[in-house]
Nucleic acid binder design. Structure first.
Length: 154
DNA sequence: GCCAACGTTGGC
DNA sequence: GCCAACGTTGGC
């Protein structure tokens, strides 16, 4: 079982949006960074678990848990001319970007804030990629130990 | 809105 | 292949 952290801006597409989708399921698309794409394409498996993390907002932190219900497939938005994530240089015969589908399992009882995570940066969460200085990746792996510890903070 | 950090682009 | 310029991310 793999564990992941998926960043999203709640004003664009956050946990509230996911909760309102049919079957609480939606594509996780629009990823346009190669390293994040490689995780999605090569390592994220169906049934893996993911923290939904809110960024660029008043209270950055982990908001909920989703499960991966579909592994990587070509992200349709790269070919949609009017889409913000349109990529004119991506070849339909060899699509550059991938999406996965995720289903909301549950919200956390409360947001576990970035501040709280940072409080354990030198301890239980040592080495967590999200906390690494300058990290901007929107898809990062989470170790099982870190995953379990974060849930004890809830 | 600021700005540090990092990724991407493109001239050479 | 180098690296300066530029764009994006994201906390604050």
């Amino acid at each position: 079982m793999g564990y992941w952290l998926l960043k999203t801006e709640p004003e664009v597409f956050g946990i509230d949006h996911l909760a309102k989708r049919p079957r609480r399921t939606a594509p996780w698309d629009g990823v346009r960074n190669y390293q994040a794409r490689n995780y999605l394409r090569d390592e994220v498996k169906r049934t893996d678990q993911a923290f939904i993390y809110h960024s660029s907002c008043a209270q950055p932190g982990v908001a909920g848990i989703a499960s991966v219900v579909r592994a990587a497939y070509a992200d349709p938005s790269q070919f949609e001319r009017r889409n913000a994530h349109f990529d004119a240089t991506s070849d339909p015969a060899a699509p550059r970007w991938v999406a996965i589908d995720v289903r909301l399992q549950r919200r956390l009882k409360r947001i576990i804030t970035l501040d709280e995570l940072r409080a354990h940066e030198e301890g239980k969460l040592l080495g967590m990629l999200l906390l690494r200085r300058g990290n901007r990746l929107s898809v990062t792996p989470v170790s099982e130990v870190h995953w379990q510890f974060i849930l004890t903070l809830e």
